[in-house]
Amino acid sequence: MSERKVNAGFGRVLIVIYAVFALAASARSFSQIVTRFDEAPVAYLLSALAALIYIVATIALARGDRTSRTVATVAIGIELGGVLTVGVASLLAPEAFPSASVWSGFGSGYLFIPLVLPIVGLWWLHRTRPMPGS
């Protein structure tokens, strides 16, 4: 495997999954906030934050240069923290999350992909890290 680019090969597949989540989370939170924001403002703002992070991660992974790699690492780190925090919180205090966000129940509404995705993302960033001197 001589492939070292973050946005080629397997990276291309990873970015598509990120893009799908960016799209799904954006569409969902957009319609939630526009149509029924007052029902559960915290949950809906969280949905919007998740959407934003997926968008940033998608673009940063797709660009793939050195700065973008840093941006992607931070975004995916926040994503992992978010899915774990919201996952635990939604189990401990389900009444605070009346309407599901992508991260509720560790992403159980999305086949737990939201939980696996940041781990795979960080692994891929690590695997494709620039070699010293390059």
């Binding site: 090969g9 397997f10 990276g11 291309r12 598509v16 799908v20």
Partner: peptide, 13 residues
């Protein structure tokens, strides 16, 4: 994309 990753992308979609 000339590798099989192209097929994988389409599979996801």
């Amino acid at each position: 994309e000339k590798s099989r990753a192209a097929a994988a992308v389409l599979l996801v979609v």
